[in-house]
Nucleic acid binder design. Structure first.
Lengths: 326, 326
DNA sequence: CATTAGCTATTGATTATTTCAATATTAAAA
DNA sequence: TTTTAATATTGAAATAATCAATAGCTAATG
């Protein structure tokens, strides 16, 4: 009786059969069930017969114009009734799930500077507005950021990166300059013009190699063929500022990490240093969760507004990180 | 976009769509899903497309030869996955439910005499064999017994009834005589022949009017046009026996309730009293639960054996209660 | 006891849906 | 760039669902 191929196992429209059966069981009448289902009576009758034939059981006593559930029918109704209701109510339940967008998770990858200086304000606003979203902030740097985005380990990444693969989109949202920081009593603090040579002359304190700034600074010196003596490589911006204050040397830092409370002299750098941007990295073509979309709207409404090219679609524009934003 | 008629609401094969979707989500591949389902790749692809169209959402990112679930897709998979599995596993779960026949309920309606003298032995055996069946013994009499059977309030009824409607089948399983019971020192205890007139002469104690015996006795006296003086009507067999012992009169009782331990004289009645039968009442055409079928097999194997006309079918034979069984 | 009312089953033609083979298209990998 | 391996599309064929008409059944009614 039972065939083997998977094809035959899923045969016919089992749901339609069960629906016909369940409604008939509830109404205690095939005709009424047909009316409720918007079908003809023979249609419902045949569905139930097919179900009985395929299951090899009798579901209804049929004594002329009356039908009654058999014990088997009762059993099946108990099993199938909830399932049919659940499936037929699926669109509504889905919509409900979808509409309370407060729920869910948001995974953000960010570098140290983003985490320290860019995100706090943003996250405060976002979490206030979406108190039930569970946010996870992953600390990654450089290429790991890109990898996390490519492999869907996070919804979005915040940071700046020099070279991006084709399938990652970058949207710059903040622009910052690199600044020279020196002790207040340093020679360069009052000097009119500052040249690359002044910087390369020594005493330079740089952030760790895996940060974009390190690579950027190195790139500039190489392009201008100017040697660059580095005194110290430190583990982060706050540490660099501290060592500059203490007179260990001069540093090049993103203006983003300068709050104005430091006891430092802050000077512009020569124009050869490009402006840096911080922005969002997304896997190209990624469908964003509602939470992620909300976050992006909050972060840069003019770029990620509801209903623009991001809406459920494939982001297409690319921007070089080395080109100033706007 | 959404139509209103119930017809359009249940349209297409929603289950097939969800099945295609869920398998594709698990396999992360439409082709592999198709293979598992025994379908062609375009078939599954089209099912998923239809589902997306009808739900108005995108379930998969499609970037060339790769697909990934969108957030909406993940949500739907969480909702629909279990449902699809449940429905596709329904035949197995049904079979499982069906095979552990120990479970379930058995509703028996019975009169006082059946409950007191016929059923205990039967129920002990049945309950020992089917320890998990929940048995409910309903105490009803006369027409209520019939009503309960007709309205499916009980699975079966045990008792004897004088007139049965067409849609109730009666199967006699035990035959009993009516007996005359008197005090041991009563005049009739030693009399050779006992006539109707002897009985009607007075001192008769009868059971309550709603019992079959009462109607039967009355019928016999009426048919023979013999007056019958009743001294006392009591509430049950045990009570009647007690009052006869105490010398209040003589009684007519079913032999079924005479255990032999009574301090009574027991005499046969004139032949004009028909033999009574106790038996099973069933609604004609009723599909019996496995429990009920087991009980009947136990009660009268020769009548209700596995695989005879009762097997899921319509019992057809009728028997008059006034015709001696066998 | 025949009749009616109300329901279900059956049938055959019709319609809608699903399916497949062949083919086009796509994007990543070689 | 070509290859590869996946999905999308298409149009025709197979399959399943549907309906109108009708037959059959039972219980209730006069």
């Amino acid at each position: 009786m039972e065939e083997e191929s998977p094809r035959s196992y899923y045969r016919h429209n089992r749901l339609k059969q069960l629906r016909a059966f369940c409604h008939a069981a509830q109404e205690r009448s095939i005709s009424r069930a047909a009316k409720r289902l918007g079908l003809s009576q023979p249609s419902v009758s045949l569905q139930i017969q097919a179900l009985e034939r395929e299951l090899g059981i009798t579901l209804f006593e049929r004594r002329g114009p009356r039908i009654r559930l058999t014990p088997d029918g009762e059993t099946l109704y108990e099993l199938a009734g909830p399932l049919v209701e659940d499936i037929d109510g699926l669109p509504e339940r889905f919509a409900a799930h979808h509409s309370r967008q407060q729920l869910g998770r948001l995974d953000i990858a960010a570098g140290e500077s983003s985490s320290l200086y860019v995100l706090p304000e943003l996250l405060r606003a976002f979490m206030a507005r979406h108190p039930k979203v569970h946010v996870r902030l992953h600390n990654l740097t450089g290429q790991d950021l890109v990898t996390a985005v490519r492999q869907d380990q996070v919804d979005i990444a915040i940071g700046s990166s020099l070279d991006l693969p084709d399938d990652v989109v970058y949207k710059a949202t903040y622009t910052y300059n690199l600044k020279l920081i020196t002790p207040r009593d340093h020679m360069l603090a009052d000097q009119d013009e500052i040249t690359l040579n002044d910087l390369g002359a020594g005493e330079l304190i740089l952030p760790p190699r895996h940060l974009t700034t390190w690579r950027l600074v190195n790139l500039v010196f190489q392009q201008h063929d100017i040697p660059c003596k580095v005194r110290l490589e430190v583990g982060g911006w706050e540490i660099m500022k501290r060592y500059v204050e203490l007179g260990f040397g001069i540093g090049i830092a993103s203006s983003i990490c300068l709050t104005g409370e430091e006891r430092l002299a802050i000077r512009d750098l020569p124009d050869v240093f490009p402006r840096r941007t911080y922005g969002v990295m997304l896997r190209r073509g990624r469908f964003l969760s509602p939470q992620a979309r909300r976050f992006l709207e909050l972060m840069a409404p003019e770029v990620f507004s509801e209903g623009n090219e991001w809406e459920g679609g494939v982001p297409d524009a690319r921007e070089s990180v080395l080109v100033p934003a706007r």
